[in-house]
Design a protein around this nucleic acid. Sequence first.
DNA 1: CGAACGAGTCAACAGGGTGTCGAGTTACGC
DNA 2: GCGTAACTCGACACCCTGTTGACTCGTTCG
Lengths: 227, 227
Amino acid sequence: MSSYASRAGSLARMSDDAAPPGGRGRRPARTSGDDRELAILATAERLLEERPLGAISVDDLARGAGISRPTFYFYFPSKDAVLLTLLDRVVAEADAAMDAVFDGSVVEPRQGWQRALAAYHDTFRTHRALTVAWAEARAGSAEVRRLWAEVVERWVQRCTAVIEAERDRGAAPGGPAARDLAIALTSMNERVIYGSLSGDGPAVAADDVVPVLLRIWLSAVYGDEPG
Amino acid sequence: MSSYASRAGSLARMSDDAAPPGGRGRRPARTSGDDRELAILATAERLLEERPLGAISVDDLARGAGISRPTFYFYFPSKDAVLLTLLDRVVAEADAAMDAVFDGSVVEPRQGWQRALAAYHDTFRTHRALTVAWAEARAGSAEVRRLWAEVVERWVQRCTAVIEAERDRGAAPGGPAARDLAIALTSMNERVIYGSLSGDGPAVAADDVVPVLLRIWLSAVYGDEPG
DNA sequence: CGAACGAGTCAACAGGGTGTCGAGTTACGC
DNA sequence: GCGTAACTCGACACCCTGTTGACTCGTTCG
């Protein structure tokens, strides 16, 4: 747990930010109980490595953090809220990675897309357990669905803008609405990466994920309608 | 419920087929209780139209079918088993639709793929509630995951074979392993269609689903690696 | 006919999970 | 040294799942 606490410096202090109306965490601000909150998050991350979300109870999280179940509810309103907090961190990481790619120097397009896909893939691959758990939580929690929808919406808007820019400068031919293309391709990324991490059903091997996705993105964006 | 019973003629009689080892249904064969089994299935389908799977309890299904909860367990071992039975039907429908497409006369490739995508899309669109519920159940039930994995595997194998055939006859250029391409594109279909049916997150409008997917499939399979 | 049997039925139970309430117990500012 | 707010948890109220054992039938067959 202390290993988590040290890494956790970068954990967004969301619950402390200005106005937390119906926010995830509970307590208004600083006190010694921060340790407990961190311990809960660390326990969640640890337990998710060994078993699926559905097999982890609030009691497991509480005991793992050295507190009783009612006390858990002092820190988080539900099990999902813990996951949401953990997820925010990964999403922030993914966004940062994307920023690094889409920013500044636009090298050749192929390389740009390749880096973006790799950044996306790497971020989620290094948080395999969390990524798989999120997919499970999404099925049952409207809150999780909402957060994910927001995240995807940002990516889609970004891709849409890039595709339109490429079309404007004549590098990419016309075709379906750029946004629809972006949605479909982003959806593909999500499902393919999840499949390769979760291991159920037919999956692309980890090393082949980016090459295959890249090929499909490039031909979809830059390829002419084939006869 | 009688409206279901009439449509249910096509419901695969899986539980009666030759050897049902660890099968879904329970009773060995025919008796008056068939009505009850059908009533449970009908109730499930009806309730899924109005609320998500997680908000439907075994008790709801039992009462909806006019029986007590313990009696429900006489017919199905769990709530998931009901969904699995319902799902088998839809999958059989989708497979039949695919058979109709991939069979016999291979017209021009574009039209072939277009029909296949449309068949896939139509099948799931006409069972919207069930499709969305399946996605929810998949998160929690290994059994549901297994069934879906099998279904997808069949589609992937089919697509892989077609892509390889197109490459062999010189109609499609080389590229990533045909199977990887098939997995990625099939995954895209799954996620895009689900997204357009479930309504959370950015989605492609129902009428645009097939055109967009088709464009991506065609450029991925037939397009040369763009510069 | 009537005993035996198997299908079908359910009240009651055992067990596990969630979320809440209210009565404690610190710890720290004043 | 005392109030107040952070913090803690035993006990409770619920809801859900899955099982057990006894009960009611209709059928079958000696």
